[in-house]
Design a protein around this nucleic acid. Sequence first.
RNA 1: CGGAGCGUAGCGCAGUCUGGUAGCGCAUCAGUCUGGGGGACUGGGGGUCGUGGGUUCAAAUCCCGCCGCUCCGACCA
Length: 440
Amino acid sequence: MRLSRYFLPVLKENPSEAQIVSHRLMLRAGMIRQASSGIYSWLPLGFRVLKRIEQIVREEQDAAGCLELLMPTIQSADLWRESGRYEDYGKEMLRIQDRHEREMLYGPTNEELITTIFRSEVKSYKELPKLLYHIQWKFRDEVRPRFGVMRGREFLMKDSYSFDIDQAGARRAYNKMFVAYLRTFARMGLKAIPMQADTGPIGGDLSHEFIVLAETGESGVFCDKALVDRDVLSQEVDYDVDLQPIVDSWTAPYAATDEKHDAARFDALPAGQQLSARGIEVGHIFYFGTKYSEPLKAQVAGPDGNPVTVHMGSYGIGVSRLLGAIIEASHDDAGIIWPDAVAPFDIGIIDLKPDDAACASLCSDLYGRLRAAGREVLYDDTADRAGAKFATMDLIGLPWQVVVGPRGAKNGVVELKRRATGEKQEVALDAALGRLIPNG
RNA sequence: CGGAGCGUAGCGCAGUCUGGUAGCGCAUCAGUCUGGGGGACUGGGGGUCGUGGGUUCAAAUCCCGCCGCUCCGACCA
């Protein structure tokens, strides 16, 4: 993409409404604009990141055997009366009426809807287990939206639902999602640590929050340092084998948010192993048994022919919130530092002097070859000053920058800069291409 | 939902106390010079001062209502 043809309204100054760094940077980098309190439009740069994050989530769900579908944003109030949640949900639920004065609502979550889909189509234990998910916009009318997309009212969420014949089956589904979540967040360059969460009236140990460590995180967290730098991605996961040992290896060391903090257990750790930090919740997995299948009568015929109420779990990832979380965890004074896997573009080319023939031709050659190799490139071909171009490129945080000036262009040399480290080196064009094209 | 603020150009703000022809910086447009870390100069464009009412010869400024946004707390993916 040529910057001269793109839509990238960057701001030099901080908008006064933005308090935390991710919100400021998303506004300054031209990723989002607020439409009203807690509701945002996604501008092209932000939308690209949103799509990449969504795709990673999708790939890992699919790998774990979860099936994607899509349920609507608008649901019927009657459905929620059936589960008893229409009244319980209170003012957080956005209630609306259609032209026939039927009561509708903008879905804050989808347990009811997915359960009715399941109950009307699945009749036998032989069709179990089933894991279904969708990635859809939700609305929760938060009393006090803040922190930009980290706590908006409208948000994009991936939610999965598991259906099993018994609790042991539900635990297997839970473990699959547990492992899939570890991989999902690791692929985005995040250190996300599963921490035991409140299970409410259900009880048991089957609820975890996945917490990203970030200095500006909203809640205090305490954990064993051993959990922080674990390698998650180097081994492929076979979702057909028993995953309990992997889950156990993660849940054995101490990890808790301040709400569930057990100071005695934490203090028992060797001092060098204690990590007290701040964190952002980006995922939550939850077994809730028959809480919805009971009132909504989601039953299948068991092996003996008698109806069995299915055991369910739900598994959420805050997709739009992840943008904020990633920026909170990865930025510096100059701007965002995107992890490679989620960056809106892989590479930024800065032409320092677009009206210089050598610069322009080297840049467009480079641009064409990178694109031909499948790389996403933002090519700054504008007539701005060098300083402004550097500042914009640092602000939007593309992992690699290629700076082409008239001096280098004459000799076929470009400057390669890694955003994360700031490391720069002058290299020949072919060497740059070698670095920027995997297996190239 | 309790408490506290703020709405003046695209963004950041001054002007409001003490009423008298709406300003500054950045951005933007034109031109000249510049040219490797948010350039300089010259000239321009852009405002129903959130909104409705009231007081007054005169309201961004004083009074009342409404709307929007933000912050602190409680709550939360």
